Simulated assay, not measured.
Amino acid sequence: MNNANLLSQLTTNERVLVNSEVQSKGKNMALAYILALFLGLLGAHRFYMGKTGSGVTMLLITILTLGFGAIVTGIWTFVDLFLIPGWIRDENSTIERSTAELILNDPKRLAKDI
């Protein structure tokens, strides 16, 4: 079930709660770009997005090659700049869906409808 269908089943107050949850737990596009631009060679933006394995890889490539690997991680970071919006959208959509499902499956909600 897609998010729009789930959200259409919620009341206005429940939708506000879902949006609040996305704002508090979701990822911030500006922060992701700042991390990528200033600490991207070290994989900071990937750590922020929860992509720990590739973040560690970028960090190790840059550090263990005494900076010469920065060419590789620099290209990698440049490509990531185009991927970040999709990552943010997917992450926030997942939070939105899980929160909406949690609200819809709440037994207390059913008691209110009766």
Rank of each mutant, 00 (worst) to 15 (best):
residue 52 T to Y: 12
residue 106 D to K: 05
residue 110 L to E: 13
residue 9 Q to G: 01
residue 55 G to Q: 07
residue 28 N to D: 15
residue 91 E to Q: 08
residue 25 K to F: 00
residue 49 M to W: 03
residue 12 T to G: 00
residue 55 G to I: 06
residue 20 S to H: 04
residue 110 L to S: 12
residue 59 L to V: 02
residue 57 T to S: 03
residue 94 T to Y: 12
residue 66 L to N: 11
residue 19 N to E: 09
residue 25 K to H: 00
residue 91 E to Y: 14
residue 86 G to N: 09
residue 82 F to Y: 03
residue 21 E to H: 04
residue 15 R to N: 10
residue 111 A to V: 14
residue 14 E to K: 07
residue 36 A to M: 15
residue 33 Y to R: 14
residue 65 T to E: 10
residue 84 I to Q: 04
residue 111 A to G: 06
residue 108 K to L: 15
residue 51 K to Y: 05
residue 40 G to S: 03
residue 13 N to A: 13
residue 83 L to V: 04
residue 108 K to E: 15
residue 14 E to A: 11
residue 61 I to Y: 05
residue 84 I to K: 11
residue 89 R to D: 14
residue 10 L to Q: 01
residue 61 I to Q: 03
residue 108 K to Q: 14
residue 83 L to D: 02
residue 35 L to A: 11
residue 46 R to T: 03
residue 108 K to F: 14
residue 5 N to H: 07
residue 35 L to M: 13
residue 29 M to Q: 07
residue 13 N to G: 11
residue 79 V to L: 09
residue 13 N to H: 02
residue 22 V to W: 04
residue 71 I to E: 11
residue 89 R to C: 02
residue 45 H to M: 14
residue 60 L to W: 11
residue 8 S to N: 03
residue 87 W to A: 12
residue 23 Q to D: 07
residue 32 A to T: 13
residue 36 A to F: 04
residue 83 L to S: 07
residue 45 H to D: 15
residue 41 L to E: 00
residue 44 A to E: 12
residue 80 D to K: 11
residue 105 N to Q: 10
residue 46 R to A: 03
residue 30 A to P: 09
residue 20 S to G: 15
residue 46 R to H: 02
residue 98 S to R: 13
residue 73 T to E: 02
residue 100 A to M: 01
residue 10 L to H: 00
residue 18 V to K: 12
residue 13 N to Q: 11
residue 15 R to S: 07
residue 71 I to M: 10
residue 56 V to A: 05
residue 45 H to P: 14
residue 37 L to S: 13
residue 80 D to E: 14
residue 90 D to G: 13
residue 65 T to N: 10
residue 74 G to A: 05
residue 72 V to A: 15
residue 55 G to C: 06
residue 46 R to N: 07
residue 34 I to F: 09
residue 56 V to N: 02
residue 8 S to H: 01
residue 7 L to R: 13
residue 8 S to M: 01
residue 53 G to Q: 07
residue 34 I to N: 04
residue 76 W to T: 05
residue 54 S to R: 09
residue 73 T to L: 06
residue 32 A to Y: 08
residue 96 E to N: 14
residue 78 F to G: 12
residue 20 S to E: 09
residue 2 N to S: 02
residue 102 L to M: 13
residue 106 D to E: 10
residue 43 G to C: 09
residue 40 G to I: 01
residue 13 N to K: 08
residue 9 Q to P: 02
residue 34 I to Q: 06
residue 17 L to I: 05
residue 9 Q to K: 08
residue 103 I to C: 06
residue 47 F to R: 08
residue 86 G to T: 02
residue 74 G to W: 08
residue 26 G to A: 01
residue 35 L to P: 14
residue 98 S to N: 13
residue 100 A to T: 01
residue 91 E to H: 14
residue 87 W to G: 06
residue 95 I to C: 07
residue 95 I to A: 04
residue 55 G to W: 03
residue 60 L to G: 08
residue 65 T to Y: 10
residue 11 T to P: 00
residue 85 P to T: 01
residue 36 A to I: 11
residue 53 G to P: 10
residue 3 N to S: 13
residue 41 L to N: 06
residue 37 L to C: 15
residue 60 L to R: 12
residue 17 L to N: 11
residue 110 L to N: 11
residue 90 D to N: 15
residue 14 E to S: 02
